[in-house]
């Protein structure tokens, strides 16, 4: 396994990008920040599959590909299935010794949006995790079906307006709570699961490297601020991720072998979730007096989750 140096950004920047420009993701899209980090944290060969979504559609605009690695364009729900099939094929051929370069290290990675990961591709992902394949699944969580016009997913948080949970005179936006995908994946017996954010580039690179190095099915949920659907200025993508991690809306942590929970970022003075919400158009309506209690409810939930994570970190269970 040849991981690259992430000691500091200068060393990290000596890597030669294997994700090319002239893809058609929106200006300022965090998906590509996350993909570039993954591809720069190793110099092993990579076999990557993508579920349909913004990343997949925008990086394979016929006749162009933005991927300098093997990359499979597959259905909305089955990147996990496709990449694990490739992994098994590679294992068998390696055993038979009939690969072009039998010793070249290869890593298998699947990318999916939250729509494909939390909802529509869920059983395919669950199956691949249960079969204990050696691969890493990375969810690009922008909390909505962005590629089809911003519908709600089970990753959309309470109070956000989306095109299918529209806020108006009779609604404050989405009512149901976000699914805890990290806990669900840990419950599959995964040796390494984590939630990471692109503003914390080092913990993200470290987590990616751990996942790639760990044998077995690893899962990482990544926060991917989406300027188009969250409604903020593209230049603020990294700042939005800062607000997300500093307000603990997206706590950054890992769970090793199902019980060893480590918090990877502890903000000195967590900011109120209100500040995170105020920076995005999708929460604008919540600032009307009649919806104040929704903001308070989200804050209470965030506080409770943070308390739970800290206790689990201590308890090591």
């Amino acid at each position: 396994m040849a991981i690259t140096s992430i000691k500091n950004l200068k060393e990290f920047s000596t890597n030669n990008d294997r994700f090319e420009g002239a893809h058609t993701l929106c200006p300022g899209c965090a998906h590509s920040m996350i993909v570039r980090e993954l591809m720069n944290c190793t110099d092993d060969n990579l076999v990557i599959a993508s579920n349909t979504g913004c990343l997949e559609v925008s990086t394979a605009v016929y006749p162009f590909t933005s991927w300098d690695t093997s990359w499979i364009h597959i259905g909305f729900e089955n990147a996990a299935t496709a990449v694990t099939a490739a992994q098994v094929m590679h294992k068998v051929r390696k055993k038979k010794g009939n690969l072009k370069d039998n010793d070249a290290p290869v890593k298998f990675v699947a990318f999916g949006g939250d729509g494909s990961t939390f909802d529509i591709g869920f059983q395919w992902l669950s199956g691949a995790m249960e079969r204990q394949h050696d691969f890493t699944y990375i969810c690009l969580d922008n909390e909505n079906y962005a590629n089809t016009g911003g519908q709600r997913s089970s990753a959309t948080p309470v109070g956000a307006t989306t095109s299918t949970s529209v806020a108006g005179t009779h609604s404050y936006g989405k009512k149901e709570k976000k699914k805890d995908i990290v806990a669900i994946m840990a419950a599959h017996g995964s040796p390494y699961v984590a939630q990471l954010a692109p503003n914390k580039w080092k913990s993200m690179a470290k987590g990616f490297q751990k996942a790639l190095e760990t044998e077995g099915p690893c899962f990482i949920n990544t926060v991917s601020p989406c300027c188009t659907e969250w409604k903020f200025d593209p230049k603020d993508t990294v700042g939005l991720a800062d607000l997300a991690t500093d307000s603990l809306m997206f706590p950054i942590y890992e769970i090793v072998n199902g019980h060893e929970l480590n918090i990877l970022y502890r903000p000195k003075n967590p900011i109120p979730v209100e500040e995170y919400m105020a920076a995005q158009g999708r929460y604008k309506h919540l600032f009307k007096p009649e919806y104040r209690h929704i903001i308070d409810q989200v804050q209470a939930d965030v506080d409770k989750t943070w308390e739970m994570l800290q206790r689990r970190e201590e308890a090591r269970i």
Binding site: L9, K10, E11, F12, S13, T14, D17, F19, E20, G21, A22, H23, L25, P27, G28, C29, A30, H31, S32, M33, R36, E37, P198, W201, T237, V238
Partner: peptide, 20 residues
């Protein structure tokens, strides 16, 4: 100051960095 912040966060692989 060659901190490489722009390199790591450019979404379009458009910052050209060589030898730090």
């Amino acid at each position: 100051i060659d901190c490489q912040n722009c390199w790591v966060w450019c979404p379009d692989t458009s910052i050209i960095s060589r030898d730090k």
